[in-house]
Computed example of a mutant assay.
Amino acid sequence: MSSWTAEELQALDRIDEIRVAGRRQDGSLRTLTIVWHVVVDGSLYVRSVRGAEGSWYKGVIRHHEGAISWDDNTREVTYIPDATADDQLDAAYYKKYGDGPDTDAIVNPTARPTTLRVEAR
């Protein structure tokens, strides 16, 4: 069950980009990085366009905790690997961002294994 409010999910669904960051061992946040995201079935998802080699992804996957930022909002989050809705996510990425090479890069075999469900804490 999602820990986001309906209003937060609606706002997240409307905007094109969010910023994500993982948490370091000392508890501080890594640098916020812009990523594309989608909302599917009441959950927020992100992927790394560079796959497992993406620096933000490496930072997030290390402790599975961090934050996201959008508009004037920042929320503490947990990042959970979740490939259960990959086909739906691919369709959602195409619907939100359109057909083209940029979207192809986020739904390809390099990016798909980095699917993370983002839960607010």
Score class of each variant (00 low, 15 high):
Ser2Gly: 03
Thr5His: 05
Thr5Met: 06
Glu7Leu: 05
Glu7Gly: 01
Gln10Phe: 00
Ala11Asn: 04
Leu12Met: 05
Leu12Ser: 03
Asp13Gly: 01
Arg14Ala: 14
Asp16Ile: 00
Glu17Arg: 12
Glu17Trp: 06
Ile18His: 01
Arg19Met: 06
Arg23Ala: 11
Arg24Gln: 12
Gly27Ala: 12
Gly27Cys: 10
Thr31Tyr: 07
Thr31Asp: 13
Leu32Thr: 01
Leu32Arg: 08
Ile34Gly: 10
Ile34Tyr: 11
Ile34Asp: 07
Ile34Asn: 12
Val35Ile: 15
Trp36Val: 04
Trp36Gln: 08
His37Thr: 01
Val38Met: 11
Val39Asn: 03
Val40Tyr: 11
Val40Asn: 06
Asp41Arg: 15
Asp41Thr: 09
Gly42Arg: 11
Gly42Val: 09
Gly42Gln: 12
Leu44Phe: 10
Val46Ser: 09
Val46Asn: 08
Arg47Gln: 14
Arg47Ser: 12
Arg47Val: 12
Arg47Thr: 09
Ser48Cys: 13
Val49Thr: 13
Val49Gly: 13
Val49Phe: 14
Val49Cys: 11
Val49Tyr: 14
Val49Ser: 14
Ala52Tyr: 07
Ala52Leu: 10
Ala52Cys: 05
Glu53Met: 14
Glu53Gln: 15
Tyr57Met: 05
Tyr57Ser: 03
Val60Ala: 15
Ile61Leu: 13
Arg62Leu: 14
Arg62Val: 02
Arg62Glu: 15
His64Ile: 00
His64Arg: 15
Gly66Tyr: 02
Ala67Lys: 02
Ala67Cys: 02
Ile68Pro: 00
Ser69Tyr: 02
Ser69Phe: 02
Trp70Asn: 02
Trp70Arg: 03
Trp70Leu: 03
Asp71Ser: 14
Asp71Trp: 05
Asp72Lys: 13
Asn73Trp: 12
Arg75Tyr: 12
Glu76Leu: 09
Glu76Asn: 09
Glu76Gln: 14
Val77His: 04
Thr78Pro: 00
Ile80Cys: 10
Ile80Leu: 15
Pro81Ala: 11
Pro81Gly: 12
Ala83Glu: 13
Asp86Leu: 10
Gln88Glu: 15
Leu89Asp: 06
Leu89Cys: 08
Asp90Arg: 14
Ala91Trp: 02
Ala92Val: 08
Tyr94His: 11
Gly98Gln: 11
Gly98His: 09
Asp99Pro: 00
Gly100Ser: 07
Pro101Ser: 14
Asp102Ser: 10
Asp102Lys: 09
Asp102Val: 04
Thr103Asp: 10
Ala105Asn: 10
Val107Met: 04
Pro109Arg: 07
Pro109Ile: 03
Thr110His: 04
Thr110Gly: 04
Arg112Asn: 01
Pro113Ala: 02
Pro113Ser: 03
Thr114Pro: 01
Glu119Leu: 09
Glu119Lys: 03
Glu119Asn: 06
Glu119Asp: 15
Ala120His: 06
Ala120Val: 06
Ala120Thr: 03
Ala120Phe: 02
Ala120Glu: 02
Arg121Gly: 03
Arg121Ile: 02
Arg121Lys: 10
Arg121Ala: 08
